[in-house]
Design a protein around this nucleic acid. Sequence first.
DNA 1: TCAGTCTTATATTGGATCGACATATATCAA
DNA 2: TTGATATATGTCGATCCAATATAAGACTGA
Lengths: 178, 178
Amino acid sequence: MDTKIFCLGILSFGDATGYEIKKQLEGPFRHFYDASFGSIYPALGKLTDAALVERTELAQDKRPDKKVYSITPAGKMALMDELAKPISGDKVKSDFLATIVFSELLSPAAIDQMIADRLAAYDSAITELDCEQTMTGPGAHFVCGFGKALYTAARDYLENHRHEIVGHSLLTKSEKVL
Amino acid sequence: MDTKIFCLGILSFGDATGYEIKKQLEGPFRHFYDASFGSIYPALGKLTDAALVERTELAQDKRPDKKVYSITPAGKMALMDELAKPISGDKVKSDFLATIVFSELLSPAAIDQMIADRLAAYDSAITELDCEQTMTGPGAHFVCGFGKALYTAARDYLENHRHEIVGHSLLTKSEKVL
DNA sequence: TCAGTCTTATATTGGATCGACATATATCAA
DNA sequence: TTGATATATGTCGATCCAATATAAGACTGA
């Protein structure tokens, strides 16, 4: 799903500006989807060119002008077509797990710090995703619970298996590796 | 962690060609990290220019020529410096969860199919990650177990909460939404 | 009060990256 | 014999991220 389709999806819930679409992605959703201004604004431009959304310029008092986008009937059809297609697998890029694979090159203290940081990050993510009540729509509700379950499982696994990655540092065995 | 650092990490385990680095990313690791030829080959070129790796051309019988890369002492230092830096959070892009958020626009049959596909994908991922024995190094061992725990939690949550997302289709309430 | 930061809002740019394709040869199966 | 798979390197267009630019009001603490 590229940024164009994602924007169409957000606009299917109601009109929004590019800025507001980006705001949505700073809440709990950012844990499973993200997009930057550098992809949102061009996407909205292309959608407008293709008549899948309509742009209404709105001059505001004491605020920069807004450009409010609304989905068109053609846009809703394009969105539904796209959603019905087979879904590609999740794309994950975890610097944490990659670092663990290479963790023999880290000092035991650095590994401990990394694990502590990660456990704290899981805790704050779990807290942030504890938001099923405030989310609008059954889909968003499900997604928050799903995220919470995953982060909880990750937290538990890391706590119970952290001993497997400490104590293997090559740096403890010889001071110089080079 | 960009592709250059990732390649340095793989090369810290031993010499490899670009093709072999890519091969590593088609096994269990692809679930948490990926890179294409379009980023691996340019990365190896830049690493060579920076003298962080060395290239040895190897003519082969009945096979295309190989370019075997080895990490240099400077490369190992650069890798260790990079690994010691604070780790950025995982980047996840889940078309599945995004589609669930927009699932009111899908037919109940399409939602059921999507869930069935996803459960099957989790099962095959869990099977593929059941490889702690064959993996070299404690880091890789940990990562496989971690992945298995996460996919198992995802599978369980989806099975136990799938009812929350079916039965909310707007298409069942009125045949035409447009 | 006044500098500094935050928020709203749009947009661009450079570099990184993906996915698809191109090229070449060899093997193996239908 | 036709097509698929494997080895091996590489390029190209489109996309995308992170950072930066611009601009103006609101808040905040010294």
